[in-house]
Simulated assay, not measured.
Amino acid sequence: MDSAVDFHGRRVMVTGATRGLGRHMVEAFAARGAEVIVVSRKQEACEQVARELQETHGGIAHAHSCHMGSWEAVTDLATDVHSSLGPLDVLVNNAGISPTYDSLTSISEELWDKTLDVNLKGPFRLSALVGAEMVSARGGTIINISSVASIRPAADWLPYSTAKAGLNAMTEGLARGLGPTVRVNGVICGAFLTDIAQGWDESGTQARMKATTALERAADPSEIVGTVLYLSSDLSSYTTGAMIRVDGGRI
């Protein structure tokens, strides 16, 4: 069992990796020997996280900034990483945004496009390019980080819900398109206490979690790690096209 989650000799790229769930993911991969590519919007933040991973775990970590909503930038990222490092073993599409708005009629075209670009267009382009390289290398796995908003949409996060629902559909389609040598799966996340939760009302959040989840609480960010490691490892060798809910039993 321990050897199945040993990532020595494997190259892993995580987007949105400098904070929140992505930060916990790269920490977990680095701790298990992976060569990690840290991707986020700001190069300085990527470099800082890469340094910290190397200092803590003694492995290899790379820093690559990328605007995940830009087709051209994502194309450049895939090209640069492949030309300098070679094919990836694991890609985790974790970067995402969920802009707020006052009402449905106040949603601008810019907000709509930005939300779908980062949450759906970027992951598609990166998965298509990296997935093709994985097929040529005869193996690899892609994990898309989705949200419970994709299956429990509400009016106050509708563009985000729409994008993540598209990501769910894309996951199954890519599993068929890149199989049999490349596996593609997704994680439907519930409420995690990342930095975005700092703006939440604590008592209100507790009441909401008690009313809407079987576990009656929000998740610690570290609780994403087990599922991601499972889907990245040979333990899930017969799992593809799946969407695994890590949402505390959302009702």
Rank of each mutant, 00 (worst) to 15 (best):
M13V: 06
H24M: 07
R32V: 01
V39D: 12
V39K: 14
Q43K: 08
E47K: 15
V49T: 14
E55R: 08
G59N: 00
I60H: 15
A61N: 09
A61C: 08
H64F: 15
M68R: 05
G69E: 10
E72G: 12
E72R: 15
T75Q: 13
D76L: 05
V81I: 15
G86S: 06
P87M: 08
V90H: 04
G96I: 02
T105L: 04
T105H: 03
E109R: 09
L111I: 12
L116T: 00
L120H: 11
L120I: 05
F124Q: 05
R125N: 11
R125F: 14
L126K: 03
S127W: 00
V130W: 03
A132Y: 08
M134W: 09
S136I: 14
S136R: 15
G140P: 02
G140M: 04
G140F: 10
T141M: 09
A155M: 09
W157C: 05
P159C: 01
Y160A: 02
A163T: 02
E172Q: 14
G179N: 01
P180V: 08
G186K: 04
A191D: 08
I196A: 13
I196F: 06
A197T: 07
Q206W: 06
A214P: 01
S232C: 10
S233A: 07
Y238I: 12
R245Q: 13
G248T: 12
I251Q: 13
